[in-house]
Amino acid sequence: MESIIRVDGLAKHFSVRKHYKGRFAPLKNFFTREASTVKAVDDLNFEINPGELVGYLGPNGAGKSTTLKMLTGLLVPSHGEVRVSGFNPWKERKAYVRHIGAVFGQRTTLWWDLPVVESLELLKYVYHIPEARFRENLSHFIDLLELSPFLGTPVRALSLGQRMRADLCAALLHDPRLLFLDEPTIGLDVVAKERIRDFIKYLNQERKTTVILTTHDLADVQKLCQRIMIIDQGKLLFDGGLERLQERFGGKRQLIVDFAEHYPDVHVAQAQLKDYQNRRAIYEFDRRELSASELIGQVSSQFQIQDLTVREPDIEATIRNIYEKQLLKVPET
């Protein structure tokens, strides 16, 4: 398949002026032009295929937003190449932006003082959307995002979640094939997050929209993303499926067993018994050493089991683990 996004050796270096502190600081700041370089993004290489839904993760300041700004044509790369849908986003910005949708976190594209619907209607003229297509998309998105209760409300009176839903609608009325979302769920409550996730899932599955989203909420990743890219200090540290991430860096899995009767000793050979109380035992095991079915087989050959569950390691813990222990120092290929 022809990739929709291609990134080769992409880098963005910001030059930041040094600011002195102290007694003569204003004078020094005025007369010196010393600058230091921040490598916000450093040598990124990846491709994304049409229809993918990619989660772009990394701690604060990792370079996520900077990457998205280069992909959307807002920033000129310092080095390297970006091609999206056949465009060079920066050089051909005006032609290019017609084909993409983008929502950058807290920043709204809607008119602050006017009813939501007025901003949405305007987009018909901005993108020259045919009337019929526009009506169809609008009514569809109004349903899916449940916008009707506040279509007539001025944007400044909306809650954060309502505004984000309206902004998502606004980013999609022109049927973009590609959607960039920078922290779409930040600051939202659980219900609002869930609504937005469902909508993103719908776009990706039903409309085959390619989606790239950055987030701090790993529930977003778990529910949505087939592919994860992790970036830190401007470098891509991991690129692959959730499963592979868990396999490599995940903590241990747990098997929780409720026995039919009380046994004085429930130890088994390959798993570690973490806890045993009231006929409930918790075993921990490493997926690289033992499969869940093997362990269940072992336990059930020795004891009567009433009920059991396998608990996967928490992805949040996995990722925290990666950042904290710096498990991913060298970019992997």
Binding site: K69, T72, G73, L74, R93, K94, A95, V97, R98, I100, A102, F104, R107, T108, T109, V126, Y127
Partner: peptide, 9 residues
């Protein structure tokens, strides 16, 4: 805020 305008044709 200008970026939201630059993202439109």
């Amino acid at each position: 805020e200008i970026s939201t305008q630059l993202l439109k044709p």
